[in-house]
Design a protein around this nucleic acid. Structure first.
Lengths: 343, 343
DNA sequence: TTGTAAGCGTTATCAT
DNA sequence: ATGATAACGCTTACAA
């Protein structure tokens, strides 16, 4: 049933080494025999056994993509970009996601144990000692997506979150004449939220503004949560020049819908902006001013960095920071025009 | 650096076969030696080499998930469900998606050639001769997601699209008093669209209604396309008791937004309903009446079927049909209440 | 109960 | 330019 290298050898009347050469270093074999072997290969429909190959070469042409979660467009776009690039480069992608933050550890442990992947791209959304330790013990080339981790040498691809958040803050303050900006983030431990919040504080500080306790809130990135939260608090925030800066589009969408339910006009009575520029940003009413995060590119870049390292393990640490882009639409009341698209 | 079975054997003062037995059939080895070997394993942090193992056992504990595309929540939810289940069952998931329908063939070809996966789950959205042929030649256990393919024995998991579409049509006609229903589908070759359209026609026929040419349209499942299309045609469709049945939520959302842009009230002047119950169904204004498709469950079920077959190749063909569920919200004007959730 | 030895299908190192 | 042959790390008869 299954045809092996020796079958080919027999049919072509050569030794298995010659067949192997035809496959791996064709230049080393005489044109005539090469052709003979090649047609034997075709005739039998021979393909090298990947296991045997992996056993010898200690590589599989497979790389892992480990994610902390798989809900939402953010993750699926990363997967999409990574998958495309991996295929381009001749690699297969093994994907797995953790049930919860702690689970990440056991996942990486599994990766380390099976060592069937040539390398792995790991998205780290919350940096914990656990994960840091797991990565340190990986003994496998890896690239970190969305974080830089102290004390461990590694390649990484991140978004310049601060730059994106700063651009948004400046737009709000300078173009839209915002007076008060309420920040609605994800969990406090979330690296994205941390960076965005930091930029929020920095820009505010530059203007001599100190946010109050009622100006900074931590939710969980979910539409429903933000909707409920908005219903409860939006009335306190209403006012000309006031504004909600949500740390992702889903929450922004929830806030907008809450405003709608409370009959509060967006952006007239309160502006709302988001982050990520997922598909829903064009589907809110009004369309959402947000910061475009190149999600698929991030996935693709991660794979690219990883493969470069696999090709040459000696190269210097690579740290790529991708630039996000401010997309202004109508939800902020400002000059909603720079966005090329409008719904 | 890398510790092998013979290292363990040496340390435990046994032969490698004993070590192998401790790992694979512990009952065959004396409790004392077993313990000795086990602690040697622990001490050295030994894990069997997956390649060598695969070479002997002809299996890898890896299964493929091949998708026609990766855009949108539908696919990402399938991946999520599949990934969860695969992990539960101790398998790794290798994911790949085709650039375009034809590309599917080369993808499956790659799967066949490397034969490093124990089996593969293939989502087939458009049945072509090409794909049918590829599957026929796979020589690998596989399960088809979202289609049943003639002339090839296979397991499959599908959605009872017709049942879902019928439920929607009945709701529209009986509960909402719909008079005219415009169907906006995806590509004519898309299996989902075909099934949904078929149910649409059947139910209409039952009522003695024959849809006109202006009642059935084929777009591409995209929000933007539907938005543009809606802007162009919505005026012709307006009327009490009139209704647009979009074959997915994205298009329904586009239609709703087009109505909004034209100042046409939904559902008062025209009702709009969708299909799938993706996240955006709760985010349209008004929230969307739709048919919930258990996407993650579909992915999980596919993996489950596949693993059952791997465990016992002799079992009879398994064909699972998942039931979709009508979710009524406010976009259809009917008794928008059965939906447990509302935005 | 344990050990010996023969594969599994490759690639790589020698000779020739 | 080609062919023997020894790894690679494991499982599994078969012997002891």
């Amino acid at each position: 049933m299954t045809v092996s290298i020796s079958d080919v050898a027999k049919l072509a009347n050569v030794s298995i080494s010659t067949v192997s050469r035809v496959i791996n270093r064709p230049s080393l074999v005489n044109a005539q025999t090469r052709e003979r072997v090649q047609s034997a290969i075709n005739e039998l429909g021979y393909h090298p056994n990947a296991f045997a190959r992996g056993l010898m070469l200690r590589k599989s042409e497979m790389i892992g993509l480990v994610l902390p979660d798989m809900h939402g467009e953010f993750y699926s776009e990363i997967i999409r970009g990574a998958n495309l690039k991996a295929r381009d480069l001749g690699y297969n992608l093994i994907i797995s996601s953790a049930h919860d933050p702690d689970d990440m550890h056991s996942l990486l442990d599994g990766v380390r144990q099976r060592r069937i992947m040539d390398g792995v791209a790991v998205m780290v959304a919350e940096v914990t000692d656990h994960i840091q330790k797991s990565l340190g013990e990986l003994h496998l080339p890896f690239v970190v997506i969305d974080s830089d981790i102290d004390g461990v040498a590694h390649d990484s691809v991140t978004i310049d979150q601060r730059e994106g958040a700063r651009a948004m803050m400046r737009h709000l303050l300078d173009e839209c004449g915002a007076k008060r900006i309420v920040f609605v983030g994800g969990l406090e431990t979330n690296v994205d939220t941390m960076a965005r919040l930091d930029a929020y504080r920095v820009i505010l500080a530059e203007r001599g503004i100190t946010p109050t306790d009622d100006d900074v809130h931590h939710l969980d990135y979910q539409y429903e949560t933000a909707y409920a939260f908005g219903k409860e608090h939006l009335r306190n925030w209403v006012g000309a020049g006031n504004c909600v800066f949500a740390a992702n589009d889903e929450m922004a969408s929830g806030i907008i819908d809450a405003a709608y339910a409370l009959d509060i006009k967006v952006p007239k009575e309160i502006a709302v902006v988001g982050f990520d520029d997922t598909r829903i940003a064009r589907m809110t009413r009004p369309p959402l001013t947000t910061v475009r995060v190149p999600m698929a590119l991030m996935g693709a870049t991660a794979i690219e960095l990883l493969c470069k390292r696999l090709a040459d393990p000696e190269i210097a640490e690579q740290r790529v920071s991708l630039r996000p882009q401010l997309i202004t639409r109508r939800s902020c009341g400002g000059g909603g025009g720079s966005g090329s698209d409008r719904a």
